[in-house]
Design a protein around this nucleic acid. Structure first.
Length: 403
DNA sequence: TCTGGGGTCCTAGGACCC
DNA sequence: TCTGGGGTCCTAGGACCC
């Protein structure tokens, strides 16, 4: 089963505030250059879509109501949804904050037919949370994901093995999860636009063009997918921790960029400590005013969760770059993660780490910037950091993040 | 007042080692 | 008398997902 919440953030806001119900609304971030994170179905009717900027959304739908997103509300709702799913199977794999796969293979002896289970889950979510969702049931994840999107909102679609061929034959390839714009174009150049022909395509030709992925593409065209629902036993470790921000205005001044990098590094480091992880690779991402985006990475001799070290590495990368245009976005990512915990390695500085954890405790208790780095305490850099969480953020599955 | 933010996975090429 | 063949590690960048 694949379950996908309907217009999740927007629906949560409409549930929380009756004045928004039945109205075209869009959940956005707080910064000036924000975009629509989720539009309610009322707004979608006007053509408002995720990723659109406010002006475009307003142009399409003059009566649209913008709501600045509230992460805590979505995290709470997401955890409640997952709790419902976990009543029916131990194998629940969060795919994003508003989607999950559930393996119901072993659930039928306890709970009956899968379609009945799906209906019960939808009922529990509706009654318990006041939210609707769309559910797909199928022999594998690829098809379940496809099915959940076929009758949105409030849908329940079953794809039986016998129907797979008929459903896929004329289906555009980009409807499958995993085939995006670039692959769609490349397939089109080979004369393949729909799944039927993809499933019958020459395996060698696909392999020549797409490498090992070519084999998978052919199988996808046939509706074959052997991947398993990860579930609790296969809980995945986080691979990277990153933050990025689009600046309120484009910036060329290096000192200004260094401050932003320190702030981002601080957020990254704090999160790493909370997860009990250290990372030994630092990446800096830069987006120019013309949207050209690139990144540079640097490996560290030892893994760290210290904002000062992460920031120093990212700043060194910045120093090596020859910036050609004003900068629109900067991002800092920590990867090559390993268990860091509070156990000290041979070369770790115990005093320093105690200080960092003490800062965390103070900030946990008194608010996020109760103690911070001196260079960040300037009148023009204390802006709130309350951008809307990404729908891809995982409440579980990777590791828990508290807000 | 055009175009967010957080991720994963894969590939390709160069450095380096034996 | 042109210049092997493995392997690993590292970096850059792209495709894709929500």
């Amino acid at each position: 089963m694949h379950l996908d919440m309907d217009a999740f953030f927007a629906s949560v806001e409409q549930r929380a505030n009756p004045a928004l119900r039945g109205k075209p609304i869009a959940v956005i971030g707080s910064s000036g250059r924000t975009v629509v994170t989720t539009a309610s179905y009322e707004a979608r009717r006007f053509g408002v879509k995720t990723g659109m900027n406010k002006f475009e959304a307003r142009r399409l739908c003059p009566d649209i109501i913008f709501v600045v997103g509230d992460n805590a509300k979505y995290v709470d709702a997401s955890e409640r949804v997952l709790a419902v799913l976990e009543r029916f199977s131990p194998l629940v794999e969060p795919f994003s904050i508003d989607e999950a796969f559930v393996d119901l293979t072993g659930s039928t002896s306890l709970f009956g037919k899968v379609s009945d289970i799906a209906r019960e889950i939808k009922r529990l979510i509706r009654d318990g949370l006041g939210l609707t969702c769309s559910v797909g049931l199928a022999p594998n994840k690829l098809l379940a994901k496809l099915a959940s999107g076929m009758e949105k909102p409030d849908g329940l679609v079953v794809i039986k093995p016998v129907d797979v061929g008929r459903i896929l034959e004329g289906l555009p390839v980009n409807e499958l999860c995993g085939i995006g714009p670039a692959t769609t174009e490349a397939l089109k150049a080979m004369g393949i636009a729909t799944c039927g022909p993809l499933g019958r395509a020459d395996g060698r030709a696909l392999r020549a063009r797409f490498g090992v992925n070519g084999e998978r593409l052919k199988l996808m065209g046939q509706g074959v997918d052997g991947s398993l629902v990860a579930g609790a036993s296969g809980e995945r470790e986080a691979k990277s921790i990153g933050h990025s921000t689009t600046l309120p205005r484009d910036v060329s001044d290096l000192n200004e960029l260094r401050l932003v990098i320190l702030k981002l590094s601080d957020m990254v480091a704090a999160r790493a400590r909370r997860y009990g992880l250290k990372g030994s690779r630092v990446s800096l991402t830069v987006r120019y005013s013309d949207f050209h985006t690139f990144s540079r990475r640097k490996s560290l001799a030892t893994a760290t969760f210290d904002a000062a070290i992460i920031s120093a590495a990212a700043t060194a990368i910045l120093g090596d770059m020859k910036l050609e245009k004003p900068v629109r976005l900067v991002g800092v990512t920590l990867s090559e993660l390993s268990e860091g915990g509070r156990q000290l390695g041979l070369f770790d500085d115990a005093g320093r780490e105690a200080l960092l954890f003490a800062m965390d405790r103070i900030n946990d208790r008194y608010g996020d910037s109760a103690v911070t780095w001196g260079s960040l305490v300037e009148p023009d850099t204390d802006d709130e950091d309350n951008g809307v969480i990404s729908p891809s953020w995982r409440p579980k599955g990777v590791r828990r993040v508290e807000f």
